[in-house]
Amino acid sequence: MHNIRKAIREAARWALDESSRFTGFEHLPSWEETINSDALPVRGAFILAENFARTTLGGEHQRDIKLTIVAKRQGGRDIDDELDEDLEQIVGLISQALNGAVICAANVQCTAEAGQTQISADGGKRVGTVAVTFNCRCYWIF
């Protein structure tokens, strides 16, 4: 069980790597608050929260792992549309890769919980960020 967080991040990264939508995006192993617009586009898979394990009377051990996928890109007037498409692709790719998967001997139920987009001007350049948080419920039956 100790590798489940890393395995979930790697599965998410692989799912994004396989998508033509995110070709050319550099994968960041950890998210930095300030990312220079010259480094764009970038993306990453991060676990920012977790509800610790609990064991049920039926012999089931559960952990809820909150996986966040972030992508940041430079864009023009249609950056809103680009971010909307990024969000939809992320939800589809991660749900397909993780929901119903068996990772580190755990059955995984993965559902999208929240998504947000943000647009800012960085030196006159429009920069957009999309973040999607998933709940990955991992359970082992003993």
Rank of each mutant, 00 (worst) to 15 (best):
R137M: 13
D38V: 09
G92Y: 01
G24P: 06
S95L: 00
G124S: 02
E26C: 03
C104W: 02
L83W: 06
A12V: 06
F52H: 15
S20L: 11
I4G: 00
Y139P: 07
R126V: 10
K72M: 15
G59T: 02
A7L: 09
I90G: 03
C110Q: 06
I103G: 04
A49K: 12
V108S: 04
W140S: 04
I65Q: 01
A53N: 12
V130I: 15
K6R: 13
L87D: 07
L98F: 01
N99Q: 08
E33M: 08
D80L: 12
W14D: 14
N36C: 03
C138Y: 06
F142T: 13
R13M: 11
I94Y: 00
F22C: 08
A101Q: 09
A121H: 00
S30F: 15
R137A: 13
M1Y: 03
D78M: 13
F142C: 11
F52L: 14
A49R: 15
T55C: 10
R13S: 10
G76R: 00
E10Q: 11
R137G: 05
D122L: 05
E82V: 13
V127C: 07
T111L: 08
A15Y: 09
G44C: 00
T23H: 12
A101D: 03
I79C: 10
L48A: 11
D80K: 14
R9Y: 04
D122W: 07
L57Q: 12
T111H: 05
V132T: 07
G24A: 06
R77K: 10
P29V: 09
E82Y: 10
T111Q: 05
K6H: 09
R5A: 14
Q116M: 11
V108E: 06
A97Y: 04
E26V: 10
D84M: 13
G44E: 00
R137S: 14
I141M: 11
F134C: 01
D80T: 15
E82G: 05
V127H: 03
N99E: 09
V102C: 07
N135F: 04
R54P: 05
I8V: 09
F52I: 13
G128I: 06
H61M: 12
A106G: 09
H2P: 01
N36R: 13
M1G: 08
D81S: 10
A12L: 03
T117D: 03
V132A: 08
R77Q: 14
G115D: 05
I90D: 04
A101V: 08
T111P: 00
A49C: 06
C110A: 14
N107W: 07
A101C: 11
S30C: 13
E60T: 15
V108W: 04
L83H: 08
E85L: 14
N135V: 14
V70L: 00
N107G: 07
E113M: 06
